[in-house]
Nucleic acid binder design. Structure first.
Lengths: 206, 206
DNA sequence: ACCTGAACACCGTTCAAGT
DNA sequence: ACCTGAACACCGTTCAAGT
């Protein structure tokens, strides 16, 4: 029977660090994520994390990947629960995207922030690998576009480009909404619906 | 005749710090912006900046404001140099927005990053004040929307909401384009034109 | 194999002291 | 009035040492 101090000798420290790291970001923001603070919270030394992650960036990678998994699931759930027509699915997925950013802000912040890696510095830029779940999330959107083309609701053209257009719009809405400035407009969920409806009109065949 | 060490006793240190700070971000990224490094570059102590800014965040505020001024000017120039019809202006301004983000990435990063201010921490969130030039930039866009409504190119509705829709799209394009992931698509300037053209179709009266 | 503790090279910020 | 230098409370990361 291991003492409390030795509880992490069984290999669960890695998962605990990821979980505790996310909780810390939720409470105090990304910039408050500190290896020392995480260590203190789970009752471990400040350098213990280095046995499980090569550095802090790789811990963030794990948190990011978990976020993309939740994100892809949320998009898929929105698509499945909506009426099967294109307009309903676009509206539901757009709303889900923006809602995810607001409700899982900690994850969202970590998911879309390449800014930490320096530009001119000797930082390895390729460290931030393509997220598998992120690819899945995009594929869900692209698939809906493809179905919309087959049903005649969406104009012909490269589905990837059209999906990225939709992605760009809902991403922009999500980001600007989190800005502390003029959020009077973007905070209203009807604004997202307003946007996706106008975009749907533009996507329709000419 | 003041020595080189005393050159900043005449009040130009403030402007020099802002300028040198931007240059530093351009070279090594936002996270490399350090009061110590700036001081070293302009040949001043690491605490000299505190005579001109209450803290590092306020130095960043000045860099941000300068960025928004350049930004608003770029949007205005794009509008003025385009053909005076709505479609041309929308395309030109959208392209200018995305181009600005790419060409002035240092400024763009500082302009749109509220993430530094902690959420649960005792950080003063109101510190990041509304940018005057940012308001001007948005007004330029909103005005173009209004003119589009008068010429019958844009459907009726709240011009602020419609402007924010356009803003969200080009902002999303700009952000996703800077991601190191699948930038094969977004890097092409024709993609921005593709997006604004589809949005324009959606904005047209029904 | 996994973790600790001290150490190193960094930060932002404060403050007495210099000119 | 403006800047310096030392100090304080933090960081991430490394590494010899413990178990």
């Amino acid at each position: 029977m291991p003492s409390k101090r030795r509880a992490y000798h069984h290999g669960n420290l890695r998962a605990t660090l990821i979980e505790s790291g996310l909780k810390l970001i939720e409470e105090k923001g990304v910039q408050a994520l500190t290896l020392r603070e995480i260590g203190a919270r789970v009752g471990v030394s400040r350098s213990a994390a280095y046995r499980h992650f090569t550095d802090k960036a790789h811990l963030l990678d794990e948190i990011r990947e978990a976020g993309f998994t939740l994100f892809a699931d949320a998009l898929a759930a929105a698509r499945d629960s909506a009426h099967p027509d294109f307009a309903s699915r676009l509206a539901a997925m757009g709303a889900a995207y923006v809602r995810f950013a607001a409700e899982h802000r900690a994850h969202f912040d970590v998911m879309f922030h390449s800014l930490d890696a320096g530009v001119g510095t000797g930082v390895d830029m390729e460290a931030r690998r393509q997220s598998a779940a992120g690819v899945r999330a995009f594929a869900i959107l692209e698939n809906t576009i493809r179905e919309g083309q087959q049903s005649g609701d969406v104009r012909p053209g490269d589905p990837a480009a059209l999906a990225r257009l939709v992605w760009s719009l809902v991403h922009g809405i999500s980001i600007l909404r989190l800005e502390p400035d003029l959020d009077t407009l973007g905070a209203d969920p009807r604004f997202t619906l307003f946007c996706t409806e106008i975009l749907r009109a533009g996507l329709a065949p000419v």
